[in-house]
């Protein structure tokens, strides 16, 4: 008990001070988070000839879009963006589809060795990607898939994690609804499609968002399986761009802005799903 040792501030005043402190803290952190992005944007708008060494002039001398023009031209941007969008879309859709099918089987159907197989899935959650990377690469090489969309997409379409997460979600859906549907003459596929999926929108969007983010920024795999610039995804293209324009920071920053922008737009539009998705991603039974 501290009463008497020093005059206590009134409760409301204390709370107000705590509040102000919290705000100050949050604002500081917020600025730290945003400032680099602003700097990146400002730099990308400077003229390519601007002496980046001269930091006294932080603001660009007018808005120069040359950097963006050059990045778009020299990065073969249209193609690379198309690759990224395509790969991300296919991986995400494929993963949601295959995972939900399997999760449905694990959660709702009874069949031979179901739980053993599921345990096997769980066990693989901790297998480092580096372990499977080389054999999968060799397999794709055998199939002649290197440097193709197949190599970029197909290995990413299956996920033990997605299956696990959706299974946990499907388990929470009450059995009664399913039973009602069976009485109405619904087939198993019908239950999956008409009952489980519509009820699992949050779970599905969660998985979709996690996969989307992972696939969009995925770097190592596309790096390994592509070698022609027209098959590059955005991160790989940007990394190679860095190699060629290592000291031209205005260009590099323009490239980074371009890489970040689509993700940012998706985030701003679907913010709610992101946050929900993250929380669902860590399913705890």
């Amino acid at each position: 008990m501290r009463i008497g040792k020093k005059p206590r501030l009134s409760r409301t005043r204390r709370r107000r001070i705590a509040h102000a402190l919290s705000y100050a803290f949050l604002a500081t952190v917020g600025v730290t988070m945003i400032a680099p992005f602003l700097w990146m944007l400002l730099t990308s708008l400077k003229s390519p000839e601007a002496d980046v060494l001269d930091l006294k002039r932080l603001l660009p001398d007018g808005i120069h879009l040359e950097n963006y023009r050059r990045v778009v031209l020299e990065l073969n941007f249209a193609r690379v963006l198309l690759n990224s969008v395509l790969v991300t879309f296919c991986v995400t859709a494929g993963q949601v589809l295959t995972s939900s099918l399997a999760a449905f089987a694990f959660a709702r159907l009874k069949f031979f060795a179901r739980d053993k197989i599921f345990l096997g899935y769980l066990g693989t959650l901790m297998i480092p990607g580096a372990v499977t990377m080389i054999p999968v690469f060799l397999l794709l090489r055998q199939l002649g898939w290197i440097n193709s969309y197949k190599a970029l997409i197909i290995p990413g379409m299956f996920s033990a994690y997605g299956t696990f997460m959706l299974r946990q979600f499907f388990m929470t859906i009450p059995k009664e609804i399913e039973e009602a549907a069976v009485i109405d003459g619904c087939s198993t596929l019908g239950i999956y499609w008409h009952v489980i999926l519509p009820l699992s929108k949050p779970g599905l969007s969660a998985l979709a968002i996690l996969t989307f983010m992972g696939s969009w920024r995925s770097f190592m795999w596309p790096l390994i399986v592509t070698h022609k610039p027209e098959m590059f995804t955005l991160p790989v293209a940007l990394a190679s761009f860095q190699e060629m324009y290592g000291v031209q920071w205005t260009l590099l920053m323009a490239g980074s802005v371009i890489m970040i922008l689509p993700m940012l737009l998706v985030f701003i539009v679907g913010q709610r799903y992101f946050i929900e998705g993250i929380q669902l991603g860590a399913v705890k039974g």
């Binding site: 680099p36 983010m213 920024r217 991160p235 590099l252 920053m253």
Partner: peptide, 11 residues
Amino acid sequence: VCAGVGIMLLW
């Protein structure tokens, strides 16, 4: 959200 190669170049 923005993590990836872009952020690395920035850093």
